[in-house]
Design a protein around this nucleic acid. Structure first.
Length: 504
RNA sequence: GGCCCGGUCGUCUAACGGUUAGGACGUCAGAUUUUCAUUCUGGUAAUCGGGGUUCGAUUCCCCGUCGGGCUGCCA
């Protein structure tokens, strides 16, 4: 049987970076096993519907490079792929469970349920659930006569359908990552499978769809582990074979206390969403990895190694390398704390691997938004010179803006440190020296200047630092003579003259 | 409270039951450099605690402890 896995997000807001990792692991697993990856939208909670969330999910996943074989957009033979479009399927399936006494009707109001919970809490019962004990005191198929139930339903009274959770049954499960897990069903509850709004809950919908869509492996977050026994029992109730399960460890806050959340990103100054999200109700904007300047391949690399590794000492991978190497059995059991610093390092590494033209392409777009129209060749040369010191593509501007705009001011500290009484004379000499050069290439100028420095018994620092200040505005940047060559004779002399005027 | 899952440097992690417990990020120091950055070299630092099993436990078992998740007509 060929592998079929799914990523099943709920369109209740932007996709969290943890969700992206779950999608990634599904993708890698599918690729590794020559299987298919399905995107299924789980929108059975209409009260939590958020405008734009579904589009966001699709765009975000596309950005990181996760492609689906079947989805709402792409279609497929198991369509529809949006749960709100599959309502009739769930009603049919819930009737099957009802008919076979695996599920039952319940008419308790939210207030009555709340009462029950308070009661159980006060009585300090060890297991505080709507279950085989407490249901005898509630309004449901067990306590009401068949006629009453029928009457209530036909009269339009709201009802839910609950799972008839058996008592004292050892449920033995297997998880690809964690191994065997045992739970006694008496600690579980009669979960609602079908809501009074006519839609299924996640529990019902995901079992029905996974079965109908012939999903072979369910790879999802660890937060689903507690409902695994329910799911197994549901497959059993339907008489279906369950797929294999793998529950991924959670991504934790950098300090390790709890799941990573949006707040952590705001406080720690790092994104937790793949791409920018603007909350439609508050207009609040959250910057994404994309807007922050992260490369998608770096995000993928970082995410893949958060909770998994191939067992070698290699750290930098492309998504296709990961697809080759991925092994679900090697996924870590413990939650992994998110490390913003290492994430930056991953980006730096991938930025370095990027070829100059590709990076220049990105930078050129950036320049255009700043209304700077430079020749591509020139941009590429600039990029080549400064790319080693960039962590983000967005660093490029800070690193090289002086190539496009002459410095307006000179850094005060740098001036104070390097501009001495005799500096102006030296700079004047350099100006006339440069004016005489016809060959304005880095090496030639460097050799000439060095000879001149030695002849006049000056030091490099004394000459080159002030010169750098006039050309760059500060004592930073790549090899000075490379800068000079790129700037060209005319521009170099212009900047020196400007400096002479300023300091005269 | 109940149920479930976890615990190797600060962080991500490696280690057929036998290793001087390895690598990476970070950090610190040094080297290189006209500057900043890069780069290079080196240092730093860990098996949660207690019992077992074993000739020998990071590794297997039990207890404790700590951490996390779940406990909704949410997913």
């Amino acid at each position: 049987m060929s592998v079929r896995v799914r990523f099943a997000p709920s369109p209740t807001g932007p996709l969290h970076i943890g969700g992206v990792r779950t999608a990634l692991f599904n993708y890698l697993f599918a690729k590794k096993n020559n299987g298919k990856l399905i995107l299924r939208i789980e929108d059975t909670d209409q009260t939590r519907y958020v405008e734009g969330a579904e589009n966001y999910i699709v765009e975000a996943l596309q950005w990181v490079g996760i492609e689906f074989d079947e989805s709402v957009q792409k279609g497929g033979i198991y369509a529809p792929y949006r749960q709100s479009d599959r309502k009739n399927i769930y009603s049919e399936q819930i009737n099957f469970l009802l008919k076979n006494k695996k599920a039952y009707y319940a008419f308790d109001t939210p207030e009555e349920l709340e009462q029950m919970r308070i009661h159980l809490q006060e009585s300090k019962t060890p297991v505080q659930h709507y279950n085989f004990i407490t249901r005898d005191k509630m309004k449901n198929s067990f306590t009401l006569s068949d006629e009453d139930v029928k009457q209530k339903i036909t009269s339009g009274e709201p009802y839910v359908v609950r799972f008839d959770m058996p008592a004292n049954k050892e449920v033995i499960m297997n998880d690809l990552i964690r191994g065997e897990i045992k739970v006694n069903s008496s600690t579980l509850d009669d979960k609602i499978l079908f809501k009074s709004d006519g839609l299924p809950t996640y529990h019902l919908a995901n079992i029905v769809d996974d079965h109908l869509m012939e999903i072979t492996h369910v790879i999802r977050g660890e937060e689903w582990l507690p409902s695994l026994p329910l799911h197994i029992l549901l497959y059993d109730a339907f008489g279906w074979n369950p797929p294999e399960f793998a529950h991924l460890p959670l991504i934790l806050k950098p300090n390790g206390k709890g799941k990573l959340s949006k707040r952590d990103g705001d406080q720690g100054g790092f994104p937790v969403f793949p791409i920018e999200w603007i909350d439609p109700s508050t207009n609040e904007k959250s910057t994404g990895y994309r807007e922050y300047g992260y490369l998608p391949q770096a995000v993928v690399n970082m995410l893949a190694l958060l909770g998994w590794n191939p067992g070698t000492e290699q750290e930098i991978f492309s998504i296709s390398e990961l697809s080759e190497l991925f092994d679900i059995l090697k996924v870590q059991k413990a939650g992994a704390k998110f490390d913003p610093k290492k994430t930056k390092w991953f980006n730096q590494q991938h930025l370095k691997k990027l070829d100059t033209n590709a990076l220049a392409e990105i930078y050129n777009k950036d320049l255009k938004t700043k209304n700077i129209d430079a020749k591509f060749d020139f941009v590429a040369k600039v990029v080549d010179l400064v790319k080693d010191r960039a962590v983000f593509a967005s660093d490029l501007w800070d690193l090289s803006n002086y190539f496009f705009i002459p410095p307006e001011n000179y850094d005060e500290k740098a001036v104070k440190k390097f501009w001495k009484d005799d500096t102006l004379d030296i700079i004047r000499h350099l100006h006339s020296l440069f004016s005489g050069y016809n060959d304005f290439t880095s090496n030639t100028i460097e050799n000439n200047v060095k000879v001149w420095i030695e002849q006049n018994q000056l030091s490099f620092g004394k000459v080159l630092n002030p010169l750098r200040i006039l050309l760059v505005g500060n004592t930073i940047g790549p090899h000075l003579f490379d800068i000079i060559e790129l700037l060209g004779k005319e521009e170099t002399l212009k900047r020196i003259s400007k400096g002479i005027k300023k300091f005269s």
